[in-house]
């Protein structure tokens, strides 16, 4: 049985390398049962999206024009 602590490592590594099926199967089963780790997984996806956007210099408010005087 995977612990949530171990799952955070797998979900982080999934951002950097393909997981093996030996890792993926217990991970998938754990995620079916664990809302906390599911949120963690989505947070990892969010971090990747945020860093990509930031590194392209597009980290702006969509409406970043200064307000009129």
């Amino acid at each position: 049985m995977l612990t949530c602590h171990h799952v955070t490592h797998l979900l982080s590594e999934a951002q950097d390398r393909p997981l093996s099926w030996r890792e993926r199967i217990p991970l998938t089963i754990h995620l079916l049962m664990c809302p906390g780790c599911n949120n963690f997984r989505q947070q990892m996806t969010f971090l990747r999206q945020a860093t990509r956007q930031y590194a392209q210099g597009q980290a702006d408010c969509t409406d970043s024009k200064p307000p009129p005087d």
Binding site: T3, H5, C37, N39, Q53, S64
Partner: peptide
């Protein structure tokens, strides 16, 4: 990081990750 988890290695109730809502909405905010 171990303090975030109980002795069985599962999230403590107060440290369980929350849903962060719609990413696009967040990323559009300066």
């Amino acid at each position: 990081f171990a303090v975030l988890f109980n002795t069985r290695g599962h999230w403590r109730a107060e440290d369980r990750p929350h849903a962060w809502g719609d990413p696009e909405t967040t990323l559009a905010q300066q």
